[in-house]
Each structure stands twice: as C-alpha cells, then as structure tokens.
Amino acid sequence: MQLVINGDARTFAETQLSVSDLLRLESVELPDMVSVQINDDFINRPDYDTTAVREGDTVNFLYFMGGGQ
C-alpha cells in the first residue's frame, strides 16, 4: 500500500499494518519518543497495536525534542 510518511511517498508490500507494525518497519528506535499522527488525528500510545494504517494515509512521526539549554 501507499503511504505518505513525514512528507515522503512510500510503498509497502503489506496490505495491512498497525501503527506498531509501521514503527517497527520504519525502525523507529525509541517509539516512546515519537508522537504518531495519522491524517489529522493523534493516536494514543495504548492504541498503537489496534490502530490500522490504511492505503493513502498520511502518517507523521513527530519526535519529542526536550533540549533548549
């Protein structure tokens, strides 16, 4: 299926993916340090296993950045 991830068009062989699957496939090292937005909505962390990513979805991984000093 086709997805847009952080602005890039991407093709996946899988036809069905959960948010957790996608985090694994994308080798997101510290999933706790990422907020996941699908289309306009933010996904609650406990729902990653049960939330499906669908053909044509726009997915954003927004990384926590805690520095400033």
Partner: peptide
C-alpha cells in the same frame, strides 16, 4: 494536542 504528556523517564535523551 500533539505530544500529550512527557515521554516515560527511561526513554528520554535530554540535551545534557
């Protein structure tokens, strides 16, 4: 709205 709440303590790389 975007980040909900602080990430779990163990996961956090701070600037320091």
């Amino acid at each position: 709205c975007a980040f909900h709440r602080p990430p779990p303590a163990g996961a956090v790389p701070t600037c320091a």
